[in-house]
Amino acid sequence: MRALPPSLAGIGAAVLLTATLLTAPASAQPTTVAGLLAHYYDLSAEAELVNEELLVVQEELAAHRQASATAVEAADEAKAAADALRDKVTVAQDLDRVADVLSSRRDLDGLTALATSTSPDDLVGKLEAATLAAHLTGGPRKGDAALEAAEAAEEKAIAAESQAQALESKVAGTAAEVRQRRSALDAQIAEVRTALDNLTPEQRSLLDGIEDYGSDVVIPGGNAGEVLRFALSQMGKPYLWGAVGPSSYDCSGLVQTAYRTIGITMPRVSRQQALVGKQVARPDVRPGDLIFYGKPVHHVAIAVDSVRAVHAPSFGENVKIGGIDNIGSITVIRRVVG
Rank of each mutant, 00 (worst) to 15 (best):
N318F: 10
D76I: 03
P296A: 07
K278G: 13
A157R: 01
L185M: 04
A71N: 04
L123E: 02
P140R: 15
V319K: 08
L22Q: 13
D216G: 11
V297I: 13
Q188R: 14
G35K: 01
E77F: 10
G236T: 09
L54V: 00
A231R: 01
V98Y: 01
A184I: 02
I158Y: 06
Q29R: 13
A164L: 11
A14E: 10
E59Q: 07
T18Y: 11
D250V: 00
V336I: 11
P220C: 13
A164Y: 09
T112W: 13
N198H: 14
L254T: 05
E151T: 10
A281Y: 08
G221C: 03
A19V: 01
I158D: 08
D186G: 13
L232T: 08
S252T: 05
E53M: 03
I262F: 08
E191H: 09
I158N: 05
D121W: 08
N51Q: 11
A78V: 08
A28Q: 13
E52V: 00
A9I: 11
P30T: 02
S248Y: 00
V217W: 09
D94M: 13
A45T: 06
A115T: 15
K320L: 12
S169M: 12
A130V: 06
A309E: 11
A13F: 08
T194E: 13
I330P: 04
V300N: 02
T261F: 04
K79S: 12
Q203F: 03
L17C: 04
R308M: 06
R334Y: 10
K278F: 14
G225R: 09
G245L: 03
E59R: 00
G143R: 10
P30C: 02
S68P: 05
G245V: 01
A129K: 04
V332P: 02
A160T: 14
V15D: 07
A301M: 10
G143W: 13
A309F: 04
E77H: 14
N51L: 06
E53P: 00
A78P: 05
A75V: 10
G138P: 06
A152E: 15
A157N: 03
H298M: 12
Y259T: 11
L232R: 06
R308C: 06
V307M: 09
Y259P: 03
A92G: 08
L114S: 14
L206R: 03
E168M: 14
V192P: 03
A99S: 12
A62T: 15
I333A: 08
K278M: 12
T131P: 03
L196G: 10
V276W: 04
L114G: 12
K170L: 09
T261N: 06
E59M: 00
N318H: 13
I189Q: 07
R193P: 07
G323M: 05
Y249S: 02
T131H: 08
D289R: 02
Q163W: 08
